[in-house]
Computed example of a mutant assay.
Amino acid sequence: MSDTDTSTAETDDREFVRDTRYITSRVTRDGRDGYPVEAGRYRLIAARACPWANRAIIVRRLLGLEDAISMGLCGPTHDERSWTFDLDPGGVDPVLGYERLQQAYFARFPDYPRGITVPALVDVPSRAVATNDYAQLTLDFSTEWAEFHRHGAPELYPERLRGEMDELMVAVYRDVNNGVYRCGFAGSQRSYDHAYARLWERLDWLENRLADQRYLMGEAITEADVRLFTTLARFDPVYHGHFKCNRQKLSELPVLWAYARDLFQTPGFGDTVDFAQIKRHYYVVHTGVNPTRIVPAGPDLANWLSPHYREQLGGRPFGDGTPPGAPRPAEIVPAEHWAPLPPAW
């Protein structure tokens, strides 16, 4: 997703409103939308800078879908037209042959009127976008793509918990995931104050919920944790100052800070986070918020590796499953872009 595309909107005197009209076709086992699940057919186009795309990167890795779904990464900055493949040699995605993600959208919808967002799942044979419905995409990775999960993959969307999980994820999206944007892009003091109050009310609620249980749904990681984590990982480097979410830093919230570090130090989470790209995206692209495009040097990120002691709450991070293996060599985040992780990672 992009925060300067037409996928988002802001006005001078109203609250920030995100355009959530995504391409709702899905890749399913029965192929009812014309896109059947098929190993090697689709390419996940993501950007490490984007929290919504970071979700898809994490879920793909936790479930072990790397062999079934290839991944292309856009750079952290873009113009009003599209995310670009400037990280690849010659600035061209090696599988799709595109310079811009926009080309995959136009291959299916020549007059596509809305924002060119990541993540997007692209049908490689047609080189056209299949879906950009990021919330449904990761749930489908858990359910529709089960045949291609690695041995020991965790159950990220357990059927017995879906009712409560869905309600929780809606609340977290409204007040936290999108809530930070409603603060940062508020068009008036009144809309900012309202968004700020909702954000901190929900963060306090989450602080209480997680005080006595290791993860949002109990003893094992679920998609709900993935969705909250990508916002928490960006909180101190970006949202606290850039988006004026500054009642406290994440590192000043004892429970949420320990919870976030617990996840960061879990294989599949921290090893997908690129703090350098995150900061560059927000501070360079959001010229309405940061017209100088100066990227701050801080904060110090080494504290992400400090002990969290959440294991004292018990639980099994992957439930009956196992941790994912090391990242693919081509998908390793450059060491200089993040706090260094233990050698085993």
Rank of each mutant, 00 (worst) to 15 (best):
S7H: 07
A9F: 11
E10Y: 14
R21G: 05
D30S: 14
D30E: 15
R32W: 04
G40C: 10
L63A: 07
D67C: 02
A68F: 10
L73Q: 10
G75W: 04
D79P: 08
D79R: 07
D79K: 08
S82L: 09
W83M: 02
F85P: 06
L87Q: 08
P94M: 06
Q103V: 08
A107M: 07
A120K: 10
L137W: 06
L139T: 14
T143C: 08
W145T: 00
E147G: 06
E147L: 11
R150F: 06
H151F: 00
P154S: 03
E167K: 02
M169K: 09
V170H: 10
N177F: 06
N177C: 06
N177Q: 11
G184W: 12
G187I: 13
R190P: 04
H194T: 15
A197I: 05
A197K: 13
L199A: 12
L203W: 14
Q213G: 00
L216G: 05
E219N: 12
D225H: 01
D225V: 00
V226W: 01
P237E: 04
F243Q: 00
N246Q: 05
K249H: 15
L253H: 04
L256P: 07
A258I: 03
R261E: 04
L263G: 02
T266R: 03
P267Q: 03
V273E: 12
V273T: 13
D274Q: 03
K279N: 06
R280C: 08
V284L: 07
V285F: 04
V289L: 15
P291Q: 05
T292P: 11
T292M: 12
T292E: 14
V295E: 13
D300M: 08
H308A: 09
L313V: 02
R316D: 05
P317C: 02
G319D: 03
G319Y: 13
P324S: 08
P324Q: 04
P329G: 11
W338M: 12
A339N: 13
P340C: 10
P342W: 04
